[in-house]
């Protein structure tokens, strides 16, 4: 009620000029409602940008962020030198994400397509609930489950190996197994979730296409490969682009929840994100800020590129 009265009064005084302040005043209730969210964005997303300066200094607590000596690109050079784990963690991040993207697309699409062939509603509902459940648990709980499967003495994996006459494996001291284990854990956790996205897309498909395909004598396999999958392609492309845009980001919770900071395995599974956290404690704030900054910049470039391609493919509709 106030805005109405005030608004008209100002309009009478200044009938033409409708500047910034006029708009703020006129819709001040709406802007005030945005304030708490904007404060959170400032606090946790924008103000931290000032700290990026640390990447170019040799930070010490006494001199603070802006008083510490400037060292140019030294921190970045160290990342690419042979003394650091820079290349190793970048490689780990890319490999884990690459396979997660491939399997994390193929398995959910297969689930969605095959669920579509199932007529029994009870079976469908039940299995869908079972497949969706891993999405609801934390990576720590996934870590407990992975432990249950791979622990040396009591784990299920070794029981199975022994049953078939193989020697048990000390999984937690053999790094080479852990990239696949982590990739599979991720596929296990998210496939049910992702399949829902594909089923949402499939529910919008034109059913008459399937009717006419059936009239023409197309088999179910032909319908899947010539109708369903081509029609799912835009969704697959968009979701893949979204993941490719984030290929330099590892899942900190996943790695730490499953492996923790186990030094025997960390060379094989450390990703850029866990490396940043670990080097904060061992190699200092400046270096780890520099690593994080490089990751963000690569991420920005890739997401922008991904968005550009998505727009090209998707009739001008970007990723966000």
């Amino acid at each position: 009620m106030n805005s109405g009265i005030d608004g008209t009064r100002i309009q009478e005084l200044k009938p033409i000029k409708k500047g910034f302040l006029y708009e703020i005043k006129r819709h001040r209730v709406l802007y005030l409602m945005s304030v708490p969210a904007v404060i959170l964005l400032l606090m946790f997303s924008y103000i931290p940008f000032a700290g990026v300066w640390m990447a170019f200094t040799e930070f010490n607590v006494v001199d603070g962020i802006f008083g510490s000596p400037f060292v140019g690109l030294t921190n970045f050079e160290y990342f690419f030198s042979e003394h650091s784990m820079g290349w190793q963690v970048t490689y780990n991040t890319l490999v884990i994400n690459f396979y997660t993207i491939i399997l994390g697309t193929v398995v959910p699409v297969a689930i969605a397509v095959l669920l579509n062939e199932i007529r029994s509603m009870t079976f469908k509902k039940l299995t869908q609930s079972m497949m969706f459940f891993p999405y609801f648990i934390s990576w720590v709980v996934v870590g407990a489950i992975v432990y249950g499967v791979f622990s040396t003495d009591v784990g299920v994996a070794n029981k199975v190996l022994q049953f078939f006459g193989f020697e048990p494996i000390r999984w937690y001291s053999e790094p080479q197994y852990w990239k696949p284990i982590i990739i599979l854990a991720s596929v296990w956790k998210f496939s049910g979730y992702s399949s829902i996205v594909y089923m949402a897309a499939m529910s919008n498909f034109d059913q008459s296409l399937y009717e006419s395909a059936k009239v023409d004598g197309a088999s179910k396999l032909q319908q899947i490969f010539y109708l369903t999958i081509p029609m799912l392609k835009p969704t697959i492309v968009v979701l893949t682009l979204l993941s490719v845009g984030r290929i330099f980001y590892g899942d900190f919770g996943m790695i730490y929840g499953i492996v923790g900071d186990n030094p025997v395995l960390s060379g094989e599974v450390s990703v850029i994100d866990t490396y940043v956290y670990q080097s904060m404690r061992t190699l200092g704030f400046s270096y780890s800020t520099a690593v994080g900054l490089m990751q963000s910049v690569m991420g920005l470039i890739l997401v922008t590129a991904a968005n550009y391609f998505a727009k090209k493919i998707n009739d001008g509709e970007g990723l966000f």
Partner: peptide
Amino acid sequence: IKKLRYRNVLAFISNFTIIFSAGLIPWYMV
């Protein structure tokens, strides 16, 4: 609200935080 003139600004400052961030350490420091 479509009448809100700066709603795109609000949307942009929200969106931008998804695609670019200062990273863990500056965030932790502040």
